[in-house]
Design a protein around this nucleic acid. Structure first.
Lengths: 248, 248
DNA sequence: AATCATAAAATTGTATACAATTTTATTTCA
DNA sequence: TGAAATAAAATTGTATACAATTTTATGATT
């Protein structure tokens, strides 16, 4: 590698000089085109890859591999990784790249404590701000969730469960709260793949949800707050035990 | 602009061809050197610029101007802006650049509600987890803060006040909580520059702090939580009134 | 063969070229 | 003159070149 190196040279008022090559063959064309906000798209896609478990916790993320997978250059990929690092889904070590975050039991416990406070606030505010239609809607969702529980349809159960929590969050009429909550919720979803599943825990979650709904109908904000906090706490306990978890 | 364009051409197994220019003059040297994590440094510096009010809320941030100011290229600047956007200090509009966030009264109110929940949790946990030395230390800080109040040394007052809140946060022994809190605290500091200052509010803040300290000494977690929440609330009220604010 | 030193490859960090947009300046026509 | 059309400039978005590191592979020495 001792041969003469070659460089671009800057020419005043003319920009830069290159070898003249005429029109490019299609295979040499760069990947330009109408703007589609690649970095946002990429951030979204990588987030999904992580939350769906395709990139499991602890996994190293090679920029190059992600570029291939998403069909974009390194620039948007790097911006996406940086964004996800702030969100707490990815950990970046200088000069050594990015890995999917693994939450230690301590971090998991800490996160749940914060989540508890946020969800309690959401419940309290929701009791004040939701209209009757919203409560009816949540009640409906609850019934459907119980049906899925009875039929042991776990995937559908999870889905409806999340919609209930989303509805409470929406009912709180506080977007900042929603954003903070969802951020932490993403991190917790990471842990789900480490945990198992238990019939007993599932039944417990259903019982807790029943109490929460009842308090919600009475618009007893303080009680909803307390129950939600307890609900999260029992979820944490089941996550920390190897025995397993159900509720989201 | 109809003249023939010139390009780089790719040569198999050889990389790229450039005009051969020999060694570069010093003025043409690129700004390379030992690694110092420019993007992290830049993020930090821009954050400070915003929090110190040098880039006021609503101000448009030109990438080019920031590059000049920080002496780096656009890459780290863009990464910094993206990171600050996630943090909520900056708002990025596609193809139209970044501006410093301005919090509307609604957003401010929402943020304070979340802050209240977080700080209440911090107080509660701190009562459980702090050792006696830490409480003594906070007590000391409190006395110093009161001194600054009596001498009307507002800058020093602010500084000590923040250290008290930091000590409580540390006492909670929950890093996730600390991170979330500080993130929101940054956004609130933005609003400070819109608000004024009132003697009455200052006195009120001191009185509230006195009660908080007393409850802290008794390790009455629930009461500390309630007082901190109320403290934040009265701060919000003073922020929303044009009349002004003091406490941080 | 095991260990250390060295070289090559892979990977990350930064700068800058070119593309696409938006903003500003200029010209044209009523 | 003023509004619309057009061109130029400025700004943002993406890709890629080169620099600096880290990781892996290779070779020398014992």
């Amino acid at each position: 590698m001792t041969e003469q190196r070659r460089r671009i040279v800057k020419v005043p008022d003319l920009g830069y000089e290159y070898e003249d090559v005429g029109p490019l063959a299609p295979s040499e064309r760069r990947n330009y085109g109408p703007r589609k906000n690649l970095h946002a798209t990429t951030t979204y896609r990588v987030r999904q890859l992580i939350l769906d478990g395709e990139l499991p916790p602890g996994q190293r993320i090679s920029e190059h591999a992600l570029c291939e997978r998403c069909g974009v250059s390194r620039t948007p990929v790097r911006e996406a990784l940086k964004a996800l690092a702030i969100e707490g889904l990815v950990k970046i070590t200088p000069n050594r790249g990015a890995t999917v975050v693994t939450l230690s039991p301590i971090e998991l416990t800490e996160t749940f404590a914060v989540m508890g406070a946020l969800e309690a606030l959401a419940g309290e505010l929701a009791c004040q701000n939701m209209n009757d239609g919203e409560i009816d809607y949540i009640s409906e969702l609850h019934d459907r969730m119980v049906d899925h529980y009875k039929r042991r349809e776990i995937h559908e159960y999870f889905s409806v469960n999340q919609r209930i929590h989303d509805a409470i969050l929406f009912g709180s009429r506080n977007d900042v709260l929603g954003a903070q909550y969802r951020q932490l919720a993403g991190r917790i979803r990471l842990a789900r793949y480490q945990a198992n599943f238990s019939e007993r825990r599932w039944a417990q979650a259903i019982a807790e949800h029943k109490r929460i709904l009842a308090a919600l109908k009475k618009r007893d904000g303080k009680r909803v707050a307390r129950l939600l906090r307890a609900h999260l706490n029992s979820k944490l306990i089941s996550l920390l035990d190897v025995s397993g978890c159900t509720d989201s």
